[in-house]
Design a protein around this nucleic acid. Structure first.
Lengths: 239, 239
DNA sequence: GCAATAGTGTCTATCAGACAATATAGC
DNA sequence: GCTATATTGTCTGATAGACACTATTGC
């Protein structure tokens, strides 16, 4: 059996093989809520539904390179924190053909997020029911609050993205990828609260973050507030 | 561009596509140390090196189903805790052709582990250098202590498996998948210490595990010791 | 001075590590 | 009783939540 499979590895017509794509969860915060950039499908199947940007993996292209290419070409974003999320390969997930997709998570600061609508992308708020730790199926909402029907298994992929972020939030630097270079402790706390979906204790959060030693105070302060301005911090590099 | 890719999804000859496989990390403990079942390659490339059992994903086969099939057919193990680990798709990872592999982690109790050698599988101890949290490249050792050269990028896959286990150890039930149905608290602690590669405080570990409420005492005790026998516990189901 | 938020101090409950004391099996 | 390990108790230091207090800005 192994010999046949070996040959099938050389000859693409010996056995039919699944097609391989990457799909990107372009994740960020929109008005303090989890959000992702979605693309409206203008073809069958799932015409009119909303989908993650994606593309086929080239025969001479790394998976990470394919994800970077999709980020650049379909979302016009030159650079972002990118990490592989999970690979989805259920039989019926695409009605056209057998397509296995490697989902990637891209983390965008709110600024990059704001420029997106010109490309036909919509910044959809992602509602994650708390659903007892596991996180249920998500719903996507347009900026006006309408529910956006999702294509394929993309609701499942979005749910996985939020769960992954929750898990990595407090031992990794993912939160900082969602913030500008300079940020206040309040902004950092807002990011944590948005992803966890639960309020946090302010003094405890401050203590934890400062004791961690990842933050450098800049001595500068935010401007334009009508109240006491908060100090701006920067992520210490390299970590 | 999208239209061309759409058609390529239907017609396998329009664009060449990567082949897709699953590879399994059959993980367990051998004499209190992390170990995995490896298969000696009897073909080029990497003839004589040691590899994870794997196989091509059928066109009508779920990824999980492919992993289950490999577990059954190549390792003769009817059932195990299986979870997707990561997808490896670097360009040169297989010199024959472009092959992308979805790595799975299978967790075996030591009993299933002991029966393996008949299938040509070797239970290799996995040495993970501590390497400051990140875990460096692993080395595999035969039961006699010889270093086993690994095929393809399988050292990287094994390293990822151990890192994943470390991360999930204390909020998931992966440790129990490595133990028999009835086990003592000492055995549970040994599993944790083996995976973390560091000793743990005994009273604190007991308290933590018992307070968690996952364990049911059975009232029964281990036998055959020449000292005080420990109580046997069972994982409470369902979690 | 007022409003609003930043930032700090203190008290308490919880949890982990250290260490020692007690319990129980075979011999 | 002796040995080896299981199991429990206690002390202590670190950490998180609750809550109140002080600081600073624009107006």
């Amino acid at each position: 059996v192994d010999e046949a499979e070996f040959l099938a590895g050389y000859d693409p017509t010996a056995y039919p093989r699944p097609a391989l794509t990457v799909d990107l969860v372009l994740f960020g915060l929109r008005e303090g809520r989890p959000a992702a950039l979605l693309l409206r499908r203008n073809q069958h199947p799932h015409l009119g539904r909303w989908a993650l940007p994606g593309g086929f993996v080239g025969i001479d292209e790394d998976l990470d390179a394919a994800a970077t290419r999709v980020l650049r070409d379909k979302a016009d974003i030159p650079h972002a924190h990118l990490e592989q999320l999970y690979t989805f390969g259920a039989i019926g997930r695409d009605p056209r053909a057998r397509i296995v997709t490697v989902a990637y998570l891209a983390l965008l600061p709110e600024s990059a997020f704001a420029e997106a609508p010109e490309r036909g992308l919509v910044a959809a708020a992602i509602e994650v029911p708390w659903a007892g730790e596991a996180g249920g199926p998500v719903t996507a909402l347009s900026p006006k609050g309408e529910t956006l029907p999702l294509a394929f298994d993309h609701a499942e992929i979005l749910a996985m993205a939020v769960l992954r972020l929750r898990g990595k939030l407090d031992y990794s630097e993912v939160a900082f990828a969602l913030l500008p270079d300079l940020f206040t402790l309040r902004q950092l706390q807002d990011v944590h609260e948005a992803i966890l979906g639960t309020p946090l204790n302010k003094p405890a959060f401050r203590r934890r973050m400062l004791d961690r030693g990842w933050l450098d105070p800049t001595g500068r302060h935010e401007a334009g507030t009508s109240f006491r301005p908060a100090e701006l911090y920067r992520l210490r590099r390299p970590r």
